[in-house]
Design a protein around this nucleic acid. Structure first.
Length: 225
DNA sequence: AATTCGGCTGGGGAAAGGTG
DNA sequence: CACCTTTCCCCAGCCGAATT
């Protein structure tokens, strides 16, 4: 057993991608099996039981969820901003579901591995338990983006950058809608379900919002359910 | 211009419930 | 314990009206 720690290079935190909640959970469960100081295991195995326990789900529902999430994940891609180019790649290059045995295996793409292992500096880490209760699509991403700046407790993100990271460039053209359907729900959920207390403000250029300003701090230690 | 608020729709998450 | 289908409800996403 490990301590279910997720460690990602910051370029991965700020990469542009979109996953469903289940796919996101699968990725995080997989990453938690990687020792960021060492090499990524060739193949990672997740059992339905582990999955259910990590995210507090009923076991009988986790089989199908896990199977579907795994198959969907195979199709997902991610764009990572390099120095000169933005690279597009897949999360995994192989997945398998073992019928009758209740587990999946997956292999991270070689390129993705670069952001998960042999890390020294420029990475963000947190416990899965801190985000296990999050259900809203963007909450987990937001948690990571904030956590990256844990030392200062402040995160400033240009609006365009925020949209790029969450792949919301073509959605919610009106900022008011983005705020109501994405930012506010995520902030509310983080305040309710995680170990940090968050508030946010905006900066305007003329009349339009140009930058998001998040402030956050660790909540006083509370009892874990 | 921008905002908030109200409301509509489609799709998906997850609960309910059942099989072997 | 492993697996599957059906059903329901929530919410992502969009839009109009009133307001600043």
């Amino acid at each position: 057993m490990n301590n279910n720690l997720v460690v990602k290079h910051n370029d991965l935190i700020e990469a542009s991608y979109k996953l469903t909640l289940e796919e996101q959970r699968l990725i995080l469960a997989s990453i938690s099996k990687v020792d960021s100081r060492k090499d990524v295991p060739v193949e990672i195995m997740i059992t339905a039981k582990e999955y259910a326990e990590l995210f507090d789900l009923q076991l009988k529902h986790s089989y199908f969820q896990l199977k579907e999430a795994t198959n969907n994940l195979y199709e997902r891609d991610i764009q990572i901003k390099g120095k000169k180019q933005t690279e597009r790649m897949r999360w995994v290059y192989k997945v398998a579901y073992s019928d009758g045995e209740g587990y999946v295996t997956l292999k991270f793409s070689p390129e993705i591995k670069l952001y998960l292992s042999q890390l020294n500096g420029m990475f963000t880490s947190y416990q899965i338990a801190n985000i296990a209760k999050l259900k809203s699509l963007y909450s987990i991403r937001m948690y990571e983006l904030l956590n990256q700046w844990k030392i200062t407790g402040k995160r400033v993100i240009p609006l365009g950058e925020f949209r790029r990271i969450l792949e919301l460039e073509d959605s919610y053209p009106r900022f008011a809608d983005l705020k109501r359907r994405v930012i506010q729900p995520a902030v509310d959920e983080l305040n309710k379900q995680t170990d940090i207390a968050v508030s946010f403000d905006v900066e305007k250029q003329g009349r339009a919002v140009s930058t998001l300003l998040f402030s956050f701090s660790a909540k006083p230690v509370q009892l874990e359910a």
